[in-house]
Design a protein around this nucleic acid. Structure first.
Lengths: 90, 90
DNA sequence: TAAACATTTAGATAATTATCTAAATATCTA
DNA sequence: TAGATATTTAGATAATTATCTAAATGTTTA
């Protein structure tokens, strides 16, 4: 969970997640959306991968990245937990 | 929003939020829960305050901190947005 | 008003991280 | 198999951040 929060603390990485929300994309396609070198994007992809927020699969020359919605939901659960407590105080 | 995510990337700060979920607490009460100096906790409280995730109000000698659930919900909304997209793809 | 208490601010240091360039790895195609 | 393409890894550097001690600020009470 800590890895996830750390991964999400960077705006570039959150933007990558939003890109992957729509459809799976290769590392190159992802990199195109940013004014940053490919190695830097690769570094960010690694952080997201370490947190299991995204999944990678090689497809020929490309590596296709996809969103791991399960883990996104897990993190969202942390927030739900914060919000919901207090409800049962009635 | 970036401030919020940055603030949430630290485990101490997330623990502080969980403490405030149950009830409002003074800076001293919060500090008691951690093996860390009060200035360090103050630094973390500042980060949370900068993100508007918590609110502070002086009460005599103490400063009482409380959770700003509105902002917590806003951040949770970011996750909802990630998850919900794809639903309307049917 | 002086002493005590609660908290923050300032300044220093060590650790982490974001980014770059250069080089390595993996795959495809001619 | 050689060259082209896609991506990552390595190594360096600059910026950010977490933490500490010491000092300052604000409040209460005797």
């Amino acid at each position: 969970m800590n890895e996830s929060f750390k991964a999400l603390s960077d705006p570039t990485r959150r933007a990558i997640i939003k890109l992957l929300r729509d459809k799976d994309r290769t590392a190159g396609e992802i990199a195109e959306h940013f004014q940053m070198t490919k190695p830097s994007i690769s570094h960010h992809l690694n952080a997201l991968k370490a947190a299991k927020l995204i999944l990678d699969e090689r497809q020929g020359q490309n590596i296709m990245y996809s969103l791991n919605t399960t883990v996104v939901q897990e993190v969202m659960g942390w927030f739900m937990d914060i919000i919901k407590k207090g409800e049962d105080e009635t």
